[in-house]
């Protein structure tokens, strides 16, 4: 193992240009994938913010007793889908309307807007079918005059989310496959550059495992370095975007770590495949 590690490290020293090229290729492949990841992450965050606004509003008939609404609030709050339930009184509804409409605030008279129960749903329960089902369960209360949840808007949002997810998966897979092919080819080049050394190793009685070990370590190191470099590049790109284009989020630390580990795994897998194929041929 010590010898394999020494050979792997020596490979960097003996062929610095090729090693730098491998690391850079891995880094840029993962960087492209990382940029796509950042876009996907920020689209997901934006959609989540919009989804947070999915809300069911049940208008309460005039003259409904406080006990009835309070009991209903308790019942609805116990729904597994409900994240929060609150009563908006006539006064609060009027204040809000005046606040939101600004210069037209004086068109509303006292008591013109009904009280309502506003229900927000937990993540995962914001699709049109669930929202509709919850609305139906609230509609059964006698005091509910009308119920609104922006059915058309919720459906559009849901469709957009599905399209974004599908596009994300398809593009992500494409980027990942392209990255794997590029990384595999780069490592194959490194293996071919050392074909003579491999042939000599085998002639003097090295086992396939012995031949393979330095390449696996080398691939792992290159992948890790490439992954780290890709993360730094993505961070720099985001800093530029944040400064000149739009405020966007970066990966969580664990997602960054996953990116580096993915680089290491790609390097390892690319090396294993390349050297394995080479050993089968010779």
């Amino acid at each position: 193992m010590r010898l394999a590690l020494r050979e792997a490290l020596l490979a960097f020293r003996r062929a610095p240009m090729l090693s730098a090229l491998s690391v850079t290729t891995i880094a840029f492949s993962l960087f492209a994938f990382g940029l796509f990841g950042l876009v996907a992450l920020n689209i997901r965050n934006a959609l989540r913010n919009v989804e947070d606004r999915v809300e069911i509003r049940a208008f309460v008939a005039d003259g409904t007793s406080a006990e009835a609404t309070s009991a209903a609030l308790g019942d609805i709050g116990a729904f597994p889908e409900a994240a929060s339930v609150r009563l908006v009184t006539q006064g609060q509804a009027l204040d809000r309307a005046r606040r939101e409409l600004g210069e037209f605030s004086d068109v509303f008279e006292e008591g013109i807007l009904p009280a309502s129960i506003e229900v927000r749903l937990k993540p995962g329960f914001r699709d049109p079918a669930t929202v509709r089902a919850v609305a139906k369960r609230i509609e059964v209360y006698d005091f509910v005059d009308d119920i609104r949840f922006g059915e058309e808007w919720v459906e559009k949002l849901h469709r957009l989310r599905n399209i974004a997810t599908l596009a994300g998966v398809a593009l992500g897979l494409t980027f990942a496959i392209v990255a794997i092919i590029i990384i595999g080819s780069t490592i194959r080049m490194a293996v071919l550059a050392r074909a003579r050394e491999i042939a000599i190793m085998r002639l003097v009685g090295a086992t396939n495992g012995f031949v393979r070990a330095p390449f696996l370590i080398e691939g792992f190191l290159k992948g890790t370095l490439g992954g780290g470099l890709a993360l730094v590049l993505a961070w720099l790109a985001l800093a530029v975007i944040n400064r000149f284009v739009v405020q966007a989020s970066f990966f969580d630390p664990w997602m960054g770590a996953v990116g580096v580990v993915a680089g290491a795994c790609l390097g390892l897998a690319g090396s294993a495949m390349s050297v394995g194929r080479h050993l089968q041929k010779v």
């Binding site: 085998r202 009685g205 090295a206 396939n208």
Partner: peptide, 10 residues
């Protein structure tokens, strides 16, 4: 077996 070859070459 393939594993015998390195032993022979030694």
């Amino acid at each position: 077996r393939n594993v015998d070859v390195p032993k022979l070459r030694r």
